[in-house]
Design a protein around this nucleic acid. Structure first.
Lengths: 145, 145
DNA sequence: ATCAATTCCCAGTATTTCACTTGGAATTGG
DNA sequence: CCAATTCCAAGTGAAATACTGGGAATTGAT
C-alpha cells in the first residue's frame, strides 16, 4: 500500500502555489525546478488539478498557474483525489454497502477497510495547504519529535 | 492509493483460519473455494505468511495450515505487512527523519504523510482477527449503519 | 507399499500502471 | 514578430499485479 508520485508531486506543487499565492501566476517550469520534478510530467498533473477546479491557468508568455482558492481553503484530500483518483482501498470500501466484495457471506473485512479509509480521510480532509506551509517553517525551528 | 488484492486476500484467508482455529489444519483448496480465490495464487500468499511466522504448515494428505497464535493475538497490520511489505506512503514517511524527500528544503509534506501513515497503523495494528470475525457475525444480525 | 492429497518451489505471462518523454499546436506579453 | 508559456495527444521502458503451469517432496489412509 503506497502513494504514487502523483500524489506526492501534486501536493508538493500545490504547496509552491500556496507560498506564491497573491503574487501572480507561477509557471510549471519554475515549480518543477524548485521541486526537482520533470516539468513535462508535472504538466499532466496540473491538467488534472485544473479539471478538478483547484487551479486556473494563464496562457502565453509570463503565464502560469494560480490557486482558485486561498491556501487555507484547499485541503490535501482534494489534491490527492484530483491527481490519483479517489482513495479506494478495495472494492468493499466503496459507498455501496450492498456489495460486500461480491461474496455471498458478509465480508468480515468490509468494516475494517472502511475504518482505515475513514482514518485516512480524517487526516487529508482536515489539513489545508496553509497548514502544510506554515507547519514546515515552524518545524525548522522547534524540532520536537 | 489502494490496497492490492494480496492484502485483501491475505486478511480474508487469515479470517478463515481464525474461524477454523483449534479444529486442525485447513487446506488452501478449501479456503480458496470458500473465498472464491485462485488457489495457486493463494498458495504464494501463504508462503509469505509462513515466512512471517504467522502460520505453520502441515504437509501431506490431510495437511494444511494453522495459525501460530490465537486469533485475538494476530493483528491485521501483521498480515498486511507480510503479504504486501510494510506500508509506505512515500519516501518521506520512513523512519529516517533526516531524509525529507531528498529535497534540500524542509519538506512541507513529510509530517503529513507521517500522520496519515500513523492513522492507518493505528487502525490495522489494533484490530485482531478475532475482532474481525466476531464483528462480522454481529453485523449479520444487528444491521446498524 | 501404494496412492491420493497436500505443501513447496520456481518459472512464465498477459495486463495494467507508473513515470516519464516527445512532438507539436495554440495563446499571449513584450 | 518572437519567445515563453499552456495545452494536447501519443508513445515508451520498466515495474508491478494477478495470476497460470508444471513438477518435486511429504504424508495419512488403505
Amino acid at each position: 500500500m503506497k502513494l504514487s508520485t502523483k500524489g506526492q508531486y501534486g501536493v508538493l506543487a500545490m504547496c509552491e502555489l500556496a507560498e506564491h499565492y497573491g503574487k501572480g501566476p507561477m509557471s510549471i517550469k519554475e515549480i518543477a525546478a524548485r521541486q526537482n520534478i520533470s516539468d513535462a510530467y508535472l504538466e499532466q498533473l496540473f491538467s488534472m488539478l485544473k479539471k478538478a477546479g483547484l487551479i486556473s491557468s494563464l496562457r502565453g508568455a509570463r503565464g502560469g498557474y494560480v490557486l482558485n482558492r486561498k491556501p487555507s481553503e484547499i485541503v490535501v484530500g482534494e489534491v490527492i483525489d484530483a491527481v490519483e483518483g479517489p482513495i479506494e482501498l478495495c472494492g468493499c470500501s466503496g459507498t455501496d454497502e450492498a456489495v460486500h466484495c461480491s461474496r455471498e457471506v458478509a465480508c468480515p473485512t468490509a468494516q475494517l477497510w472502511g475504518d482505515v479509509l475513514h482514518s485516512i480521510r480524517n487526516v487529508v480532509d482536515h489539513r489545508s495547504l496553509q497548514d502544510l506551509i506554515s507547519h514546515s517553517s515552524i518545524n525548522n525551528k522547534t524540532n520536537e519529535k
